[in-house]
């Protein structure tokens, strides 16, 4: 069992190559996020020169650009990035933990739960600010617990959890419609926010809680990266490798739901971003290792690009959720057809 040195060197070389490819993918995703962020600031209905944008960002008063960039475009771009990161990271964490791309929080009702709670808090209870987020987080966790309880019988099977989740999600969406229809002063745009998600009307001072939630919950999730990677080998193997399954599961659920609920309370349940980010990140050439960071960046790209398309590239203005929804729905159908063919979990 002695080892030839070249074999060890080749192994180390390959591992380093994988690692640098991974870093390259992450760097590339980061630069796409930065480019889309810049595009959102520079080019909207009108063009603002990068110089003016930078001066606005530095707090100077630039006539003609101060309001457009500082009040409209910047909050919108910041919310897009924060919500996209939250959805991408939280969604991928669920998909990895349950080893199923359909087990994403927006498919199994957690996003609709958070959205329903936010609408209820705003319309019926007349709350605003962080109180809405607290409601959303509580409802998100509640729905996660409910779906889990309803689908557990001799252990939780993936497919059952997804079907129960889809049912719960449909119920919550009709609840959102019911609450909104009782509030006649609400515009179609606002209704769409709570049904498909939108970054319209974002305000910079509301971003701090979202940033703090993302940093806290996101950090907690990333600290579980290795355990989540081990869980991909199945629970028995992960446990044999020393992962404490129950504890890991609780940490991941709380962190992912928390992050997604905070983002939902701001931007609504932006359709399918949580669901799409992980699978897209997994298919990037050279992608290997944990999907969490690439999926988070993919989420930010989806929201930034989706919002830009919805605002400027389509014949009329649509909120971001309509665009991402149009992207996600075909993929959802594809996955469900695949389950149907294989008769089990995809």
């Amino acid at each position: 069992m002695t080892l030839p040195a070249p074999a060890l060197d080749a192994l180390i070389g390959n591992r380093r190559r994988r690692l640098s490819r991974r870093r390259l993918v992450i760097a590339l995703l980061l630069s796409i996020v930065a480019a889309l962020f810049a595009l959102t600031l520079v080019l909207g209905q009108s063009y603002t020169s990068p110089g003016d944008v930078i001066r606005v960002l530095l707090g100077e008063d630039v006539p003609g650009a101060g309001f457009t960039v500082g009040q409209l475009r910047l909050p919108r771009a910041v919310l897009s990035v924060l919500a996209g990161l939250s959805f991408g990271l939280g969604g991928a964490a669920f998909q990895i933990m349950l080893r199923n791309p359909l087990a994403s929080p927006d498919i199994i009702g957690i996003s609709s739960g958070a959205s329903a709670a936010a609408v209820f808090a705003i319309v019926v209870l007349s709350l605003d600010g962080p109180a809405v987020s607290v409601f959303a987080v509580a409802a998100g966790l509640g729905v996660a617990l409910l779906v889990y309880a309803l689908s557990s019988r001799n252990g939780v099977a993936g497919t059952r959890l997804i079907l129960v989740g889809i049912g719960v999600s449909a119920m919550l969406e009709s609840f959102i419609l019911y609450v909104l229809s009782g509030a006649p002063a609400w515009t179609l745009q606002e209704a769409l926010r709570w049904l498909t998600g939108s970054v319209n009307g974002a305000q910079l001072d509301q971003m701090l809680p979202l940033l703090v939630a993302l940093a806290g919950f996101g950090g907690l999730l990333l600290s579980r990266t290795r355990d989540l990677e081990a869980l991909r080998l199945g629970e028995d193997t992960a446990a044999a490798l020393g992962v404490r399954i129950a504890r890991t599961r609780i940490v991941v659920i709380v962190a992912a739901v928390g992050m997604i609920a905070f983002a939902t309370a701001m931007a609504g349940p932006i359709a399918f971003v949580a669901f799409l980010s992980g699978p897209i990140a997994a298919r990037l050439p050279g992608s290997n290792g944990s999907l969490l960071v690439p999926a988070a960046l993919t989420g930010a790209i989806l929201v930034l690009a989706g919002d830009y398309c919805g605002q400027f590239l389509l014949p009329s203005r649509y909120p971001v959720g309509v665009v991402t929804g149009a992207l996600g729905a075909p993929y959802l159908i594809f996955l469900i057809v695949r389950i149907n063919r294989s008769g089990g979990s995809p």
Binding site: L233, G234, T237, A240
Partner: peptide
């Protein structure tokens, strides 16, 4: 658990290999 996992290993009946 980690300490135990350094002494006692298990190969389950049907472990799952992540795609790719």
């Amino acid at each position: 658990s980690r300490e135990l996992a350094r002494t006692l290993g298990l190969l389950p009946q049907s472990p799952i290999a992540p795609e790719g």
